[in-house]
Write a protein that binds this DNA or RNA. Structure first.
Length: 343
DNA sequence: AAGTCGTGGGG
DNA sequence: TCCCCAAGACT
């Protein structure tokens, strides 16, 4: 009993020392120029955290800027349509995040009168906000200490205690993460441990010599890089036959409501659904596009057609003739916007 | 609990 | 070239 208590106290001293060192390192060496670190509000933290899920800072930054430019506040966002939000998400990927932002802002409007909720359990109920994102919003947006567990934190803390990230269980990771949380400056700590993971304690070639907690780290200068033990599965190949119809100044696109990939984004018609329009549209080009997703390969056969006018299409799908100069108002998958830009 | 969901970049 | 991974959540 006594030994355990001593052991706990020692561990607590050690984790708090590490936590404080990370805070100090962040204040001196952190990436203070990131856009979501200026004018910190729960709303801005929320948008940034969602955008940064599985997405690198460099990739998310321009999207964050244009999103905040259009919707600087919760109230401004409250009037947005899902289409408008998806338009700002075009090319960023994981589009469910954008659909969930729409759902969440609707809930915040109806249930919280456009005031961002303050309680951890309230955040957890919102679509797209899991335990880690909720913790980040609490620590960063409200300066209310909560653990987070993203890729950076997992890597840093398992290295600190010299455990194998592939073997340690999720709940052990959460337990570890909460031990390091800094009650005095949870903002600097939370930002700091992520910056540390992103810039010093990197997946490969970590620079331990620059690390503020090298003396406390059980694997300093002796990092073993985890190999993914899971065998890479063969990607399923998905054929898509699409027909992009255009007039001089507009494009015919369909809302992709039925598929789980690119759900609610706008894409060209499926070729087979346009069989009856052979005389109406004039084939101008065809091309093969191979587009890789995480688990699939899309083989897109794309035909481009010219139409004299914005014909009415006989279908129950939701389609639109979209003016080319307004195409940026619609959510498009990357390969589709690429093709359209090349027209 | 293993798959699903995008896209870009690094080694 | 190929594999891995990135401020994960959801099913």
């Amino acid at each position: 009993m006594k030994v355990q208590l001593l052991k706990r106290t020692f561990l607590s001293n050690q984790t708090q020392l590490i936590s404080q060192k990370i805070v100090q390192w962040y204040l001196d060496n952190g990436r203070h120029d990131l856009p979501w670190r200026q004018k910190v509000t729960p709303y801005r933290i929320w948008i940034s955290e969602i955008m940064l899920q599985q997405t690198q800072v460099k990739t998310a930054t321009p999207y964050f800027k244009s999103f905040i430019k259009k919707y600087p506040t919760q109230k401004k966002l409250s009037r947005a349509s899902e289409d408008q939000i998806l338009a700002l998400w075009s090319g960023l990927g994981f589009y469910r995040r954008a659909r969930n932002i729409f759902k969440t802002k609707e809930i915040i409007k109806e249930k919280y009168n456009n005031k961002f909720p303050k309680e951890f359990h309230q955040l957890l109920e919102l679509p797209g906000i899991g335990k880690s994102t909720a913790g980040a919003i609490m620590s960063l947006g409200y300066r209310n200490p909560h653990p987070i567990l993203d890729g950076n934190v997992k890597r840093v803390i398992t290295r600190l205690v010299n455990q194998n990230l592939n073997l340690i269980k999720e709940r052990e990771l959460w337990k570890l993460s909460s031990q390091f949380v800094n009650k005095d400056n949870c903002f600097a700590y939370t930002q700091g441990i992520m910056d540390l993971g992103a810039t010093i304690c990197t997946p490969t070639n970590p620079s331990c010599k620059d690390c503020p907690v090298q003396n406390q780290c059980a694997s300093a200068f002796n990092i073993t890089i985890n190999k993914n033990k899971r065998v890479a599965k063969l990607k399923k190949i998905i054929p898509m036959n699409l027909s992009l119809i255009q007039t001089k100044d507009s494009l015919l696109l369909v809302k992709n409501e039925d598929s789980s990939i690119w759900k609610n984004l706008w894409i060209p018609f499926e070729t087979r659904s346009l069989k009856n329009y052979a005389g109406v549209f004039k084939l101008t080009s065809s091309q093969e596009i191979q587009h890789e997703l995480t688990h699939r390969v899309l083989n897109i056969s794309l035909n481009t057609y010219l139409s004299e006018s914005e014909s009415k299409i006989n279908t129950n799908k939701k389609y639109k003739w979209i003016k080319k100069d307004r195409i940026d108002q619609y959510g498009l998958p990357k390969p589709i916007s690429k093709v359209i830009n090349e027209l």
